[in-house]
């Protein structure tokens, strides 16, 4: 009897400290896993948003870059970490949308193994071509590609990259089969695009906007419902006559499955506050980022987004025979 009482007491005490720990969360720095190398678009967004979230939470958010296998290495580690709110991660369109189709041995399920926190920022996809490409608008571009299908080369930044997935999606929407040329990262791909070595690619606005503004490459359309203030002269795909191609590389914060709801709510609150902050907004907009609306920032909305993205990418990528294993 005494033993039981003791166990009970111990259990109660433990539960109490547990509850207290949650009430005081966070008591130590939080690690945010960014599954890509430092300096890339997802990393920059994580650092900008994380900086403001740290101030709301009163604890530093430490960015840990765990790059590899199209971001799935870092996300796998995040999914398997303690669900105590001290490890969170910045997932994106690739890790939580395209990955199941690309990596058959993926160790996590984007829709089931996470506690979604909220959408951070989207980066629109722009269709760009070398500056000597013999077409001045999207329609001319599509006509040329259809007439010269065997001559056209599309560049991408490697299997599993945003430019790869969105490029395959583009090709399937406009029904062309160009020769695909892979590069290791966006930099070298852009270099060859500027040198007129390859013909076109689709990539995030952050990566291509400077070269478009500098006149080194051409932009045909931006795949968002509205034009971007960073590239006001580039028409949307809808305006240019290709409404079926609407895609953006979204970035969102996730915690591992089983993270207590109070902690999720606290993290979501910090995220929402950072997206309302004037300075944070300005920095994200300067990058060409799209800031999610109030409704899009909830965990429930993110869960829905992940499910719809997996459903969208899987058939497109499987049909193209793309696989990373």
């Amino acid at each position: 009897m005494k033993k039981i009482a003791l166990t009970l007491a111990a259990g109660l005490a433990l539960a109490a400290t547990g509850a207290q720990a949650q009430g005081n969360y966070p008591q130590r720095p939080i690690t945010m896993i960014v599954p890509f190398a430092a300096g890339g678009p997802t990393d920059v967004i994580a650092r900008i948003v994380g900086d403001h979230m740290s101030r709301t939470l009163g604890q530093q958010i430490v960015i840990e870059n765990v790059a590899g296998a199209g971001g799935t290495t870092g996300i796998t580690r995040g999914a398997q970490s303690q669900p105590d709110g001290y490890t969170i991660m910045m997932g994106h369109m690739g890790t939580h949308g395209a990955a199941p189709a690309l990596y058959p041995n993926l160790k996590y399920d984007p829709a089931k193994d996470f506690a979604p926190i909220g959408l951070a920022a989207g980066t629109p996809i722009v269709i760009v071509a070398k500056k000597d490409f013999p077409a001045n608008d999207l329609k001319g571009f599509l006509d040329y590609m259809k007439a010269n299908a065997d001559k056209v080369n599309m560049a991408h930044a490697g299997v599993g990259s945003v430019s790869h997935s969105t490029g395959i999606f583009f090709n399937s929407v406009v029904k062309v089969k160009p020769t695909m040329v892979a590069y290791r990262g966006t930099g070298p791909a852009l270099n060859d695009l500027m040198a007129n070595t390859v013909d076109y690619m689709t990539d995030q606005i952050v990566n291509v906007a400077p070269q478009i503004l500098g006149g080194n490459i051409k932009a045909y359309a931006i795949a968002t419902p509205e034009r971007s203030p960073a590239l006001p002269n580039v028409p949307t795909t809808k305006e240019a006559g290709l409404p079926d191609y609407e895609v953006s590389a979204w970035n969102a914060v996730f915690a591992p499955k089983g993270t207590p709801p109070e902690i999720v709510a606290k993290l979501n609150d910090a995220l929402v506050k950072s997206l309302d902050d004037e300075n944070t907004r300005k920095r994200l907009l300067d990058l060409g980022g799209v800031i999610p609306s109030k409704e899009e920032r909830t965990p429930a909305a993110l869960q829905k987004l992940v499910e719809s993205e997996v459903a969208r990418w899987t058939p497109v990528l499987k049909a193209a025979g793309a696989s990373a294993e």
């Binding site: 190398a37 430092a38 300096g39 890339g40 990393d43 920059v44 650092r47 900008i48 990262g185 930099g187 852009l190 270099n191 500027m194 952050v206 906007a209 400077p210 070269q211 503004l213 500098g214 006149g215 080194n216 300005k282 920095r283 300067d286 990058l287």
Partner: peptide, 24 residues
């Protein structure tokens, strides 16, 4: 604005974080 190696790619990130879009 094109980084030739990994360290320079990081410098691009540093520039963008500071609100400077690297490029021509």
């Amino acid at each position: 604005g094109i980084p030739p190696n990994a360290v320079m790619a990081l410098m691009v990130g540093a520039m963008t974080i500071h609100g400077i879009v690297p490029g021509p």
